[in-house]
Simulated scan of single mutants.
Amino acid sequence: MRAVDLARRVTADPLLRLLAHGFATTYGRPPGAVWRAPYAFRLAASAVDPGPPPAAAAPRTDWVAAANWYVAAAVSPRADGLLRCGSLNHPAESAELPLTGPAAPAPGWAARPYAVLRALAAAGFGRGGADLHVNATLPDAVGLPVAEPLECAVALALADVHAARGARPLSRAELADLLGAAVPGDHGLRRAALFGRAGRLLAADGSTDRPLPAPDDGPAPSLLLLTARTAPAGGDLADNGAGAATALATAVREALTAGARSASWPGTRPGRSVLLLMPPERRTAVRTAVIDAFRRCDLPVPRLLRIRVTSAARRED
């Protein structure tokens, strides 16, 4: 198995170099594989196609897509059935956990990756164990779901390094089925992380895909993620009181007035972030309207993050 020495590669993404360096520092060897998986998000059908559907049309489905921000996992195989895991985002919360037999308590950040790798081990993939280091490039407060892309990056990396040692390769379709059967989560977001295509939306049920709709054959629309800064980490909008809810509702209303075509939650339930879809020429006007709305409500200026629809998870060589 060829080691991936990204830490010394000056042309590599700096965050991937940092991850590879953290892995080598922690485990005394470079990783055998580094995989990145994109953050994924949902767009409600009503956000993509405003207005009632034609009478003869099939019921609308929500859409999912991969974003131009990622989580990454660095892995090397072991042969003793143990998972040693660490995170750049939680440097004081590393762990050594068994992949077979009774499960051990895992740090909060590692609970989902641990469940994924135990499920893969139970299915015969990666039972020998692994050293694992991960990094999420966006803070939780941004509001994009991180669990599903992290699961995909970890599972792809583990399957990769064990296949390099002679194990049966695990296809992405098989991986999606294993994750869907073994670990609770949003199957649509996993599909986006595993099968996303640049510039295209995937049906959440996996049935079809389409480009981001551009009215009147104009340029592709822009996506802007609006996140209230006042919500507590990990909480939803209700945790923050009426003030933030009012500011967010006001900002959305004024964004629509300023030219945004739609607003929807990026995850499966309402939270503190809203995804705005707009013509690219209205982006500056929408940003200004959103910022002014929060200032009038005496709240901090929200985070505004441009989102581009990108491709699925990939190995970093």
Score class of each variant (00 low, 15 high):
V48D: 00
D49F: 10
D49E: 14
G51R: 12
P53V: 13
P53W: 08
P53D: 14
P54K: 12
A55E: 15
A55F: 09
A56L: 11
A56K: 03
R60V: 09
R60C: 06
T61N: 09
T61S: 13
A65G: 14
N68C: 12
N68D: 15
Y70Q: 08
V71E: 02
A72T: 03
A73D: 02
A73K: 01
A73Y: 01
A74D: 05
V75G: 01
V75L: 07
V75M: 06
R78W: 10
R78D: 07
R78Q: 11
D80F: 11
G81H: 08
L83P: 03
R84F: 04
R84V: 03
R84M: 05
C85L: 15
G86P: 03
G86K: 05
L88A: 05
H90F: 10
H90N: 07
A92P: 02
A92W: 05
E93T: 07
E93Q: 15
E93I: 03
S94K: 04
A95T: 09
A95I: 08
E96M: 08
L99C: 07
T100F: 01
G101A: 13
A103C: 00
A104R: 13
A104C: 08
A106E: 03
A106F: 03
A106V: 03
G108L: 08
W109A: 02
W109N: 02
A111L: 07
A111D: 06
R112Y: 00
P113W: 05
Y114T: 14
A115V: 10
A115R: 15
A115N: 11
V116C: 10
L117H: 01
L117E: 10
R118Y: 07
R118K: 11
R118W: 07
R118C: 07
A119W: 04
A119D: 07
A122Y: 08
G124E: 13
R127T: 15
R127Q: 15
R127C: 09
G128L: 08
G128D: 11
G129S: 12
D131V: 00
D131F: 00
L132I: 09
L132E: 04
H133D: 02
V134N: 01
N135K: 02
N135T: 04
A136T: 00
T137I: 00
T137P: 00
T137F: 05
L138R: 03
L138E: 05
A141H: 14
V142M: 01
V142A: 02
A147H: 12
L150S: 06
E151N: 08
E151Q: 14
C152Y: 04
C152D: 13
A153H: 01
A153L: 02
V154Y: 02
A155D: 09
A157M: 04
A157V: 02
A157W: 01
A157L: 04
L158Q: 15
L158E: 10
L158M: 14
D160G: 05
D160W: 03
D160P: 00
V161E: 08
H162I: 09
H162G: 09
A163S: 14
A164I: 01
R165M: 11
R165C: 10
R165T: 14
A167W: 05
P169H: 15
P169C: 13
